[in-house]
Amino acid sequence: MISTQGLSKRFGYRWVLKDVDLDAQAGEIVALLGPNGAGKSTLLRILATLSKPTLGECQIAGFSLPQQAAAARARIGFLAHQPLLYEDLSAEQNLAFYARLYRIKRPAARVTELLRLFDLHLRRQEPVRIFSRGMQQRLALARVLLHNPRVLLLDEPHSGLDRAALDVLDSLLRKLAKKGTTILFATHDLHRAQSLARKVYVLAEGRLVAPSDGRRRIPGSFSGVYSRALRAAQKGA
């Protein structure tokens, strides 16, 4: 469902991604770990068709990027660092607008369903500007799920959420994966990655330094592997 071969990205003279080979099957939850500046967001933006790779190949939901980016977009849901919402519009107006862009059948029902799911229904008429960080994140997640995408690319989806919202999100992601949705999420949180993902990639200085084997369970001592991999990458750089 997601596959990259030798994916590299350069900004000016700096390579922010180098030879990234990544693979995620349908219904798989895959975590992308790494420190700040490792290239996680850049990788997700390329997979979401917002950026083009400098080198390498990339397939998502059966489409090659960047050649078939336009066709792939209908199958991708991307949660970015920013909520990608209009602050002056209400929660309901934001979702209704995106529902129109994605040509969703019965948009009002879908919007209400998602507002209820993320516990925003009672504040649906309020402008996003006055929402807390966590509420904006929940609304952004609702936006991402509007069109039932087959591939979810989530950049730090847990950030800003309280305990209850974290549990709702995790159970929702597991449920979606069971239905066949492929989920790739970037995080700093090793424990979250271990509890949720079946496969973990570690990105440091733009390179994958510790891909785990999807057929094995992630070992309990993975934190040690993660720390050693990051130290080695930093020394190498």
Partner: peptide, 17 residues
Amino acid sequence: AVEKEGKALDGLLLAPV
């Protein structure tokens, strides 16, 4: 500027339109 706030323009570019 409305599109720049919250990177809303990216939201438009992600849509299959």
